[in-house]
């Protein structure tokens, strides 16, 4: 009796149960990898924080959530597909930003650079050029 009832439940199971979200990966440019390495040495607490926040964004994407639904305070759009991840949980921190391009077409989060508030405009301009390159190579 129990098995029959469960079979009814399983037959009518919603699509969500079998839904497999896309397998997102994370990619880093050579330049960004060097910047992360440098930032870890200069600002270890801030870098640990932005790296952890990157991991949180990545886990959300991996669980099938869409970018448009993200309402995290540390996650901001800079336009043209570029997003900025800031730090949290670091009192008296020096503002550190990680720039990413979550590309839904390839299910890849491209990590494009890391920097501080002073270099923000330069970093954003450079990151957007890289996004154009990535899109142009498809």
């Amino acid at each position: 009796m129990v098995l029959r009832k469960l079979q009814h439940g399983i037959k009518n199971v919603s699509n969500n149960a079998m839904y497999k979200p896309p397998q997102w990966g994370v990619a880093v440019t050579d330049e960004a990898a060097k910047e992360i390495h440098k930032c870890v040495a200069k600002h270890p607490r801030e870098t640990a924080s932005v790296n952890d926040n990157l991991r949180r964004v990545f886990e959300q994407l991996r669980s099938g959530k869409r970018l448009a639904s993200f309402k995290f305070g540390f996650f901001r759009s800079e336009g043209d597909g570029l997003y900025r991840i800031g730090q949290t949980g670091v009192p008296g921190a020096r503002e550190t930003r990680l720039y990413i391009f979550p590309d839904e077409a390839s299910s890849t989060v491209f990590v494009l650079g890391m920097g501080d508030k002073d270099m923000q405009q330069r970093d954003i301009k450079h990151a957007k050029e890289m996004i154009r390159d990535i899109r142009g190579n498809k």
Binding site: V28, T29, A33
Partner: peptide, 19 residues
């Protein structure tokens, strides 16, 4: 532009900046 792909952020950070 060279990029390297990883399955997890942990693997990326390990490679870029160590344990």
């Amino acid at each position: 532009m060279n990029t390297k792909r990883y399955d997890t952020v942990d693997a990326l950070v390990l490679d870029a900046a160590g344990k």
